[in-house]
Amino acid sequence: MDNTYYDLLTYVVYGSAILVMLIGLYAVLVKKSLLKIVIGLSIVDSGLNLLIVSLGYLKNGTAPIFSKGFFELAADKPMVDPLLQALVLTAIVIGFGVTAVALSLVIRLWRHHHTLYIDEIKNLKW
């Protein structure tokens, strides 16, 4: 494929990943509801994963699996970087664990204060 196509794709992929991250950060910084903050954190997680995986992509690359089809059909193609994929694989599972613990904290706070409004919780503390 020609180079202008890839130049366009650079802006599309990196731009969308960074935009998704920024939208999530906006939710974390501005929103007052605790659940919205946790949703924003999980959106930041998604954008970051997309950014890391797209760093390892190569032009005309194939998936890093040495199957029989690879040796027959695509043996001369370069392979996509498997190290970043392994990192992201770990990061997704840990992200789920973090989200679950954060949501359990939210439930615990609701049980005590009966509100998810962070200013209200701050007032109750003092």
Binding site: Y6, L9, T10, V13, Y14, I18, L51, S54, Y57, K59
Partner: peptide, 17 residues
């Protein structure tokens, strides 16, 4: 933040070795 992130990553390039 977004401007500098985008600057860095577009400088790296997509699909290059």
């Amino acid at each position: 933040v977004g401007f500098y992130l985008a600057d860095v990553f577009i400088g790296i390039g997509f699909g290059n070795d």
